[in-house]
Amino acid sequence: MTAVVPPPRPATATLLPVRQLSRFEDGERLHSLLWQAGAGWRMISSAVLGGGVGERAWVLNAQVSHGYRRHDPDRHLAELARQAGAEGAGVGLMTAADVRAYGHGADEGVVAVATAGLGVRGWAAAAPEALAAPSRPGTINIVVALPVAMTDAALVNAVATATEAKVQALLDMGYDCSGTPTDAVCVAARTPVDGEEVHAFAGPRSLWGARLARAVHRAVRGAAPALR
């Protein structure tokens, strides 16, 4: 039987390289960020395309029009990814923000990229009347990559830690909110390989959770304009 050789672990500096893309759509020039991670990644995401937990090979963060009215965003994102050369299963995120103004954060092996549109923001536990109003475009998208493998429970914990770090960054910058109604997150960890540790914790006081939190905090601060 031929042994299966896992893909080499990427160096930290190249863990989350994003490629900037542009396109014309309905007479408007729009932009995207594409991370072609390749094989060997498990991701957890709240994304409209490729959400949940599973093996994923790429992440696309696509800018759309402020008047976006399509009712098939998953299909739209899949089309954009295919046009960009992404193959296999992946994660697709959307935002009305200009993704070229993304923020980047890194901390001891963890890398995060964030884009931020803050035209609509508020608190998660909003009054019922606030939920009745239609949501205008405004999204914070966060993508994080860790160079280690994690259990499913740790991946869920990582999403919570990333969200806490996002809120902390917003408060530190003077925003009186927990985010926007359409925020999304994607956390990528390496696929478990025999003989390597699979980490069971990603809370903010765990080794990798703390690093993730600091990386996300820096990325969100880099993407969100400071209040004057």
Rank of each mutant, 00 (worst) to 15 (best):
residue 44 I to K: 00
residue 26 D to V: 06
residue 201 F to D: 11
residue 206 S to Y: 09
residue 188 A to P: 04
residue 209 G to V: 06
residue 152 D to N: 11
residue 203 G to D: 14
residue 90 G to L: 00
residue 211 R to D: 09
residue 212 L to E: 00
residue 176 D to P: 03
residue 44 I to S: 02
residue 66 H to E: 14
residue 103 G to N: 15
residue 132 A to T: 14
residue 153 A to C: 07
residue 174 G to V: 01
residue 4 V to T: 07
residue 26 D to L: 09
residue 160 A to L: 12
residue 204 P to F: 11
residue 215 A to Y: 06
residue 132 A to R: 15
residue 190 R to H: 12
residue 75 R to H: 10
residue 49 L to N: 04
residue 84 A to R: 07
residue 27 G to R: 12
residue 212 L to K: 00
residue 216 V to W: 00
residue 4 V to R: 01
residue 14 T to E: 15
residue 55 E to H: 11
residue 163 T to D: 09
residue 131 L to V: 00
residue 2 T to C: 14
residue 6 P to D: 04
residue 212 L to Y: 00
residue 103 G to C: 12
residue 28 E to F: 07
residue 192 P to Y: 04
residue 179 G to V: 07
residue 140 I to N: 01
residue 138 G to R: 09
residue 1 M to T: 08
residue 15 L to S: 03
residue 106 A to S: 06
residue 122 G to K: 05
residue 93 L to K: 04
residue 155 L to Q: 10
residue 133 A to G: 07
residue 79 E to F: 00
residue 28 E to H: 08
residue 145 A to C: 13
residue 53 V to P: 09
residue 11 A to K: 10
residue 179 G to D: 08
residue 79 E to N: 05
residue 102 Y to Q: 07
residue 29 R to V: 03
residue 99 V to G: 09
residue 99 V to I: 05
residue 188 A to T: 05
residue 148 V to N: 03
residue 196 E to K: 03
residue 191 T to Y: 05
residue 151 T to R: 06
residue 194 D to N: 13
residue 81 A to F: 10
residue 152 D to F: 14
residue 21 L to P: 05
residue 66 H to V: 03
residue 160 A to V: 12
residue 52 G to R: 05
residue 10 P to L: 12
residue 44 I to D: 00
residue 15 L to F: 02
residue 175 Y to P: 02
residue 203 G to I: 05
residue 134 P to M: 13
residue 14 T to S: 13
residue 17 P to I: 06
residue 76 H to F: 15
residue 14 T to D: 15
residue 215 A to F: 06
residue 192 P to R: 03
residue 72 D to P: 04
residue 194 D to H: 13
residue 222 G to L: 11
residue 227 L to W: 13
residue 104 H to R: 05
residue 146 L to T: 02
residue 93 L to S: 05
residue 85 G to P: 08
residue 195 G to M: 15
residue 209 G to F: 09
residue 201 F to N: 02
residue 142 I to G: 00
residue 226 A to L: 11
residue 206 S to I: 10
residue 226 A to M: 14
residue 58 W to E: 06
residue 42 R to E: 12
residue 41 W to M: 01
residue 84 A to V: 11
residue 140 I to F: 04
residue 173 M to H: 05
